[in-house]
Design a binder for these strands. Structure first.
Lengths: 130, 130
DNA sequence: GTCATTGCAAACGCTTTGCATCTGT
DNA sequence: ACAGATGCAAAGCGTTTGCAATGAC
């Protein structure tokens, strides 16, 4: 039996993820924790994040740059609009679509559905220059 | 100036991508081409795919397993419903949503928008067993 | 004949794993 | 004290790059 133990490292990871709010890569999170003066291994951050995702306390998303980004699970499900040039992200909600995806999945006999919706574009700042 | 040259390798990659229809990883595509008797390097497949994406002839998507999947750019934009257990995929369309995403992006000052929508769930076959 | 393209192997970056040590319970 | 957790270093995996040979133009 794999019984979980509370450690300050795991607490630090969850705390920083919470504090950050948006999507962060494991490595960025690691840097942020180190910056607070706490010293812990990158491996531990990965393990803590995996644990959080499995426990439903965090979401994972595969970004375009190949990194896996994590975020604290928020009660209100929202999506991201990401600038291809500067990487700046904005959040938006899709109340109707949440229902729609459920319907589509059901009609195909799928259940226990989750969805990943990301919009990529050029933001107003980068659009002027490029 | 980087002027493009036509090679049978690039043709083979585009041809197989076309023929496949859905999302394929570079490695899968490489295997498929080898299976047709043509011999070419994996590197070449990656380079050909990158070229196709830049040229707007193919789309790229970062899958959950960390691989980058490519597909031929189809006039009719559709999305995927993927089974978490068996990996089986089904396609669906979201005519309304195509417009909706455009609207959302615009309202945030974004332009030149593309979107990635993937639904993950448990299909009927796997749902019975598991 | 030139110069982009190919293809192998080595390099890369992110993530995972092996294993000895440490620590929460 | 025991079993899970940590952290370093090394392995793993998909992808990219360096460079000599090749082939399209």
């Amino acid at each position: 039996m794999t019984l979980k133990r509370a450690t300050w490292q795991k607490t630090a990871v969850k705390e920083q993820l919470d504090l950050f709010g948006g999507f962060v890569s494991a490595q960025e999170l690691h840097q942020k924790i180190l910056a607070t003066g706490k010293k812990l291994g990158l491996t531990t951050v990965y393990r803590a994040l995996t644990e959080l995702v499995l426990g439903g306390e965090a979401d994972a998303l595969n970004a375009e740059d190949g990194e896996t980004k994590y975020r604290n699970c928020t009660p209100k499900h929202h999506h991201h609009l990401i600038c291809r040039k500067c990487g700046n992200t904005r959040e938006f909600e899709l109340p109707d679509f949440e229902v729609e995806t459920e319907r589509i999945a059901r009609s195909h006999g799928f259940k226990d559905v989750s969805h990943s919706i990301e919009l990529f574009g050029i933001c107003s700042k980068c659009g002027v220059a490029g």
